[in-house]
Amino acid sequence: MRDFSELKAILESRLEELDARVHDIEDRLDDPVSKDWEDQAVELEDFEVLEDLGKAGMKEMDLIRAALGRIEDGSYGECAKCGDDISIERLKAVPYAVLCRKCAK
């Protein structure tokens, strides 16, 4: 069994970072909207960007939680398609990868 403690620490750190970022985005989206129409238009565009960033962050958080679950159940680092080991290089690049390089193509 391979040791994934370094990757687990990276995943946990990234999860904390994303959680803080998503909460910050949620707080900013709750800010009151300006009464000026022009300012409102700009703010609404900003809100759309923030919403997209929040959704992307939440999706990555789900992927990270799934990867942490695989670490716990012992299936982390195993390709979900072919069952081969996912290379450590790939896991370092994409720590929540579920497919080996060959199957991801």
Rank of each mutant, 00 (worst) to 15 (best):
S75C: 02
G54S: 00
D3S: 15
D36H: 10
D27Y: 05
L44Y: 13
Y96L: 07
R65W: 08
A56D: 12
P95Q: 10
R2K: 15
K35M: 06
E38G: 05
G57P: 00
E16V: 06
L91W: 06
A97H: 01
R65Q: 15
L29K: 04
P32W: 00
I86P: 00
I25N: 00
A66C: 01
E78F: 08
S13M: 13
E89C: 04
L91N: 07
L99M: 09
G83V: 02
R101G: 11
E51S: 12
R28Q: 09
L91M: 11
D46P: 05
A80Q: 15
M1G: 15
E48R: 12
D24T: 14
R101C: 02
Y76V: 03
R90E: 12
E17T: 09
K92S: 13
E45D: 14
S87N: 04
P32D: 12
C103Y: 06
L11M: 08
G83P: 01
K8F: 13
L15W: 11
A67Q: 04
I64S: 07
F4T: 06
A67E: 07
A9D: 15
L50T: 01
S87L: 06
V33K: 08
P95I: 06
E16S: 13
R70Q: 10
A93V: 12
R21T: 03
G83W: 02
M1E: 15
A66P: 01
D52N: 13
E45T: 14
E26F: 01
G77K: 06
G54Y: 02
I86K: 01
D52W: 07
S34H: 08
K8Y: 11
E89K: 09
L99P: 00
D73A: 00
P32K: 04
G57W: 03
E12H: 04
D46R: 14
K105R: 14
D36G: 04
L68Y: 03
S75R: 04
C103Q: 09
D31P: 00
S34L: 02
S34K: 04
L44D: 13
A97G: 01
R14D: 13
D39T: 07
K59I: 08
M58G: 13
K105N: 14
R21S: 02
S13Q: 15
E89D: 13
G69R: 01
P32H: 04
E48L: 07
A41F: 09
I64L: 10
G54Q: 00
Y76D: 00
A56H: 09
D27S: 14
R21D: 03
E17L: 09
E60V: 11
R65S: 15
H23V: 05
Y96G: 02
P95K: 08
L15G: 11
